[in-house]
């Protein structure tokens, strides 16, 4: 769950390229392996939380409006869970 939060936050906050963040940047921020990240990214794209944009060099990912809503909910309820000393 935290990894998904990190990925969505990274894609939301990524400013340098309007097409979105590349996989290398996401690996660095989420701190997970390429294989695992690929599975999570495809799930997030399937669920409509991320949009996949293709450029000449590689696939890039940017957050969708549903992704922003999910991230908003994630942050709100993560704070709620933290009040109980828990993580969501």
């Amino acid at each position: 769950m935290k990894i998904i939060g990190d990925i969505l936050t990274t894609t939301r906050d990524y400013i340098p390229d309007e097409n979105g963040a590349n996989v290398t940047h996401l690996i660095r921020n989420a701190n997970i392996s390429h294989g695992r990240l690929s599975k999570i990214l495809s799930t997030l794209v399937e669920q409509g939380l991320l949009e996949q944009t293709s450029s000449k060099r590689a696939c890039k990912y940017k957050i969708s409006s549903e992704g922003r809503e999910f991230l908003n909910a994630y942050n709100t309820f993560n704070e709620f869970a933290q009040n109980f000393g828990l993580r969501i």
Binding site: M1, F70, A73, Y74, F77, F80, A81, I88
Partner: peptide
């Protein structure tokens, strides 16, 4: 509401 929005087992 948190569980329905995030699917978190903790919630």
């Amino acid at each position: 509401v948190g569980y329905k929005n995030t699917g978190s087992p903790t919630l």
